[in-house]
Design a protein around this nucleic acid. Structure first.
Lengths: 354, 354
DNA sequence: CTGAAAGCGCTAACAA
DNA sequence: TTGTTAGCGCTTTCAG
């Protein structure tokens, strides 16, 4: 009797031997090919069952030149914004039989680079990058690779990579108009480091609202935070020092808003009676705070799903003949802009004098 | 001139051809073997550079029978407790040159099963399972596989899989003693569904404190929540109905505490003046709430790190001869219990009459 | 110091 | 309907 070595998992040859057929036949049974006699099939299946055989994805990948694996690079999994994207990407990937190699760059560009190399080495079928601050050189480098890449809520300067973005500029404008409509005129903004592309767009949107001419006499003060609750506390203090009269603070994200809320409370300023606060991202946390935070919601899961679909579609496309279109300038359909929505909650209200 | 096909990445043969050597030599250079003449090495390196060659991890995995990939199964990535584990596991894995296949079972047992199969197929080197409710059948099944598995904060009834657990019973006791010491006597507990093993242990710990004899006249009421903020609202209402006089609520986790806080506030009950609330997990969120939530902290990152180390150590061990010890009953060193710590914050205080 | 050759586990012509 | 064979891209004896 032919025993398996201990610790080794069964191979297709083991199954073939046991079933008394060739490996080709086993392969046919596994892949569900119809050109197999029923009795043969049954025999193979019995052997598969008996041996607990599961085909090696590694061998299959080598042969088929596809790993059914997607790489997902995120800036910081600990930031509640990202798990939503991860979930969406994974859902979409799993539906199509793909798994996800998660790469949490932990806000470290060099780690991000390491991961990108690793993903290439692992021959993933595609890469989704949801990084708040993709380095320009990464973009250039990525554009030279053969693996399809799509960007989620970030852009690579220069390199024309397909991307799905949320309309950050509109989001900034929406937030600003909301407090301006409420009557606020001295407003502050706590932004994020400039390597974060979204930050700039949101500031631009806020500026759009200020410059629209619809709100005379607006004073806008911008300070830089770090997108974290802790960092936002110092930023809030700095803002209040530079512009003691602000009655509304627009925050780069919800975590920043949390920090602002805490700081304001510590200073004895009531929200929203004394100061209104607006967040961004509408993570679950926003609704849980006291007061619940008014926030700009992005279509996070749509973004993740779109990214995966785009990737798989692109992979399929590359099989087609004469598919050298990668060399052509990518067209504008490659960038999708998703609308945002303002969720008004308890952290905003009219200014004290209104 | 020998051109590469478009869209295909360079292989070791491409490099060999270009450098005018055999693939064996290229392989030696890549692996840093010293037995290569300097000039030859230089030539190979030049070819590697020119072609942008990166060795295929897939082919290497097939040959070397190791993928340098770990599977990580989590119950719900959207639950803020898990990203911390993910981060820790990934950190430890990356340090040792491994990548992580993330599997978010999204609280769906059948999806978890699908993922486990997928991980086996992908021939991951090991699997870390951080699932709140591992099914018994999964455990049995896992025990039959050759791939090393370690459990984080969960156990598989029957199957003797190595596990790292946080001392949930001690945590429950700690939380209970805290409010009992403050003078509370009518206390409530919002637990989690029984498939969650930790939930039972925490209840037991609370019961330990109650039964210790140190606190006479304690009344404990337990209701079941779902570990989510939303579900906790109904559970809090149910608790208050069954035991209107409770002055302290111990929660299964911080998310549950958030829900309790909101509900109490809605009812006009002040925290901690009227009712004290204790959370569990000490996720960042706990400190951000108003009032900040007193919570039991687990050593999350230590758990993730330990899991990976255990896995890799086990993988190394399997190469050794006569390593049939898997058949022997696993010994108790296979289960590690990590201590917990109580973080006292503003959500707990003496009962109203004290 | 270097090359030839075998083989990891699988699939896909091509024959039979 | 089934088997034979040739690789996928790499590493690793074993010769030279």
């Amino acid at each position: 009797m032919h025993n398996l070595e201990v610790g080794r998992s069964a191979t297709i040859s083991d199954v073939a031997r046991r079933a008394g057929v060739s490996t080709a036949t086993v392969s046919r049974v596994i892949s569900g090919s119809t050109t197999v006699r029923a009795t043969t099939r049954a025999g193979v299946l019995a052997a598969v069952e008996a041996l607990g055989y599961r085909p090696s994805g590694v061998a299959r990948s080598l042969k088929l030149r596809t790993t059914h694996t997607l790489g997902l690079v995120v800036t910081d999994i600990a930031n509640p914004y990202f798990p939503q994207i991860v979930r969406a990407v994974e859902d979409a990937a799993l539906e199509r039989g793909h798994t996800v190699l998660l790469c949490d760059s932990a806000d470290d560009p060099s780690r991000e680079e390491t991961y990108l190399d690793l993903l290439i080495d692992r021959r993933v079928d595609g890469i989704v990058i949801a990084s708040s601050g993709l380095q320009a050189r990464h973009g250039d480098w990525l554009a030279t690779r053969t693996v399809p890449v799509v960007l989620v809520n970030c852009t690579a300067r220069g390199a024309a990579l397909p991307a799905i973005l949320s309309d950050n500029r509109a989001g900034g404008r929406l937030a600003a108009e909301h407090v301006l409509d409420l009557g606020h005129r001295r407003i502050g903004h706590i932004s994020a480091p400039p390597r974060n592309a979204a930050a700039g767009d949101r500031v631009a949107g806020i500026q759009d609202a200020v410059d629209s001419g619809r709100y005379p006499g607006v004073e806008l003060t911008v300070v830089e935070g770090d997108g974290q609750a802790e960092g936002a506390e110092a930023a809030t203090l700095a803002l209040l020092e530079r512009a003691p009269g602000v009655t509304a603070i627009l925050c780069y994200n919800d975590l920043t808003a949390v920090g602002a809320l805490r700081t304001l409370r510590g200073l004895g300023r009531r929200v929203p009676e004394d100061v209104s606060v607006v967040g961004y991202d509408d993570i679950p946390l926003a609704a849980w705070m006291e007061p619940p935070i008014t926030s700009v919601a992005q279509q996070t899961s749509a973004m993740g799903r779109w990214a995966v679909e785009r990737l798989l579609e692109r992979m399929a496309g590359e099989d087609e003949p004469g598919s050298d279109r990668r060399q052509l300038g990518e067209r504008s359909e490659n960038v999708v802009l998703l609308p945002v929505e303002l969720c008004v909650r308890g952290s905003t209200g009219p200014p004290p004098w209104a």
